[in-house]
């Protein structure tokens, strides 16, 4: 699963710390999310998407290997 957090964050001029404070997680969590090293819970995915005024599937893109073949 990949996500557009970095891109959306840059668009809204938010730092990792700002976003972390808004969605009430540690900055480290945002770092790992952006690197794609961590898949968030549904609640965190919802909170982040709501912050950017987008749907969850617009921020988090699930890539199924079977779909691409």
């Amino acid at each position: 699963m990949r996500n557009r957090i970095k891109e959306l964050r840059a668009r809204e001029n938010l730092t990792q710390l700002d976003l972390a404070k808004i969605v009430n997680v540690r900055r480290e969590t945002i770092v790992f999310l952006e690197k794609g090293k961590y898949n968030p819970s549904l609640k965190l995915a919802y909170d982040i998407s709501r912050q950017f005024k987008l749907q969850i599937e617009e921020v988090f893109i699930f890539e199924n290997k079977e779909d691409s073949t």
């Binding site: 710390l17 997680v25 540690r26 480290e28 969590t29 968030p40």
Partner: peptide, 16 residues
């Protein structure tokens, strides 16, 4: 330092 910045001590990632 992180607590001073207003970050929570623990979240879902650190718990995992």
């Amino acid at each position: 330092k992180e607590e001073k910045e207003g970050q929570p001590i623990e979240d879902e990632f650190t718990t995992l």
